[in-house]
C-alpha cells in the first residue's frame, strides 16, 4: 500500500546521491568544447589527459603515494591491532584514545599540526611529508579493520595451533596470517582510497617538488569548469570505486564465523 511511497523516497535519495556523479561522468565523454552543451560521445578529453605529461606525472605520483601509504599503514596498523588485541601493556587506553583522536579530529586540525611538526623538525615538504601524513590518517582505519577481524575469531585457535605442536612462528604463518589476510587486504584498499581522496591534509604538507592529482584538480576547479577536469575527476572516481569494490568483496567473502 505504502510501498510506492517507500521505494519512491529511497529512489529520490539515491538520485540525489548519484545525479551529480552521473552528470560528471556523462560530461567527461562530451565531444563539445562548450562544457554545457552535449556534442555527442567522444573519448577526446581522455586522450587529451593521456597527452598531458604533467598530469600523467601527477597521476603516477598519486599512485606511488597511495600505494606506499596503504602498505606502510597496513604494516603498522596490523601490528598495532595485534598489540591492542593480544598484549596487556600500560597506556593501552591512551593509545586507543590517540587513535580515536586521529579518526575524529577534523582533517584541517591534523593537517596544521603535521605541518607545524614538519617545519619544526625540518622535514622537506614533498613525498616524505605527504607519506608520513597519509600513513597517520590511514592508521586508525586499518587498525579498526584488522582489530575487528582479530576479535572475530576465538584466540583459542591460536592456542590450539601451539597445543598441536606448532612453534610461535609456524602458528603465525599457518593460522594467524591466513585467517586475518582478508582484513589485511581490505585495510590496504581502504588506506589506498583514503590516500587517493585526501585534499585537506595534502594541501598543507605538500611541496613544489611532488605534485599529486587531487591538488591539481583543486587548483583547476577553483577557477571554473573545464572539460579536461571532467575526465580527470572521472578517472579518480573510478579508481576509488575499484578499490572500494575490492575491499567490500574481501570483507564479505570470508567473513569470520562466530563460534
Amino acid at each position: 500500500m505504502l510501498n510506492w511511497l517507500k521505494y519512491g523516497y529511497l529512489s529520490l535519495v539515491y538520485l540525489l546521491l548519484y545525479l551529480p556523479i552521473g552528470v560528471l561522468l556523462l560530461y567527461s565523454f562530451n565531444a563539445s568544447k562548450n562544457p554545457y552543451r552535449w556534442g555527442g560521445f567522444s573519448w577526446h578529453w581522455y586522450e587529451r589527459l593521456w597527452q598531458n605529461t604533467a598530469l600523467i606525472d601527477a597521476a603516477a605520483n598519486t599512485l606511488l603515494l597511495a600505494i606506499s601509504a596503504a602498505t606502510l599503514s597496513t604494516l603498522i596498523g596490523t601490528l598495532t591491532a595485534i598489540a591492542l588485541q593480544r598484549y596487556r601493556f600500560r597506556g593501552k587506553r591512551f593509545l586507543n584514545g590517540m587513535l580515536f583522536v586521529v579518526m575524529m579530529s577534523p582533517d584541517i586540525v591534523l593537517a596544521i599540526s603535521l605541518l607545524a611538526l614538519f617545519i619544526l623538525v625540518g622535514v622537506q615538504l614533498g613525498f616524505l611529508s605527504l607519506l608520513l601524513a597519509h600513513v597517520t590518517f590511514c592508521l586508525p582505519f586499518v587498525v579498526i579493520t584488522v582489530y575487528a577481524r582479530l576479535s572475530g575469531f576465538t584466540p583459542q585457535i591460536l592456542e590450539a595451533a601451539r597445543d598441536l605442536g606448532a612453534s610461535e612462528f609456524r602458528m603465525v604463518r599457518t593460522v594467524l596470517l591466513p585467517v586475518i589476510s582478508p582484513a589485511l587486504l581490505a585495510g590496504w584498499l581502504l588506506g589506498f582510497t583514503l590516500s587517493l581522496d585526501d585534499v585537506v591534509v595534502s594541501m598543507f604538507v605538500t611541496g613544489p617538488t611532488f605534485e599529486i592529482l587531487p591538488l591539481r584538480i583543486y587548483s583547476m576547479v577553483r577557477l571554473g569548469i573545464k572539460p579536461e577536469v571532467n575526465a580527470l575527476a572521472s578517472v579518480l572516481l573510478l579508481l576509488s570505486l575499484a578499490a572500494l569494490v575490492g575491499s567490500q568483496y574481501l570483507l564479505t567473502r570470508n567473513a569470520p564465523h562466530t563460534p
Binding site: Y14, L17, Y18, L19, P20, I21, V23, L24, Y27, P35, Y36, L190, T193, L196, D197, V199, P214, I217, Y218, V221, I225, V229, N230, A233, L236, L237, S240, L241, A243, L244, Q248
Partner: peptide
Amino acid sequence: LVIVPFWTNSLVRTYAMKLLISVN
C-alpha cells in the same frame, strides 16, 4: 550504493555539484 559516495573523492563530488547547479 550508500557507501560508494562515502569513499569517493569529495573534491570530485563537490565539483560535480558545481557542474550541476551552475548557471548553464
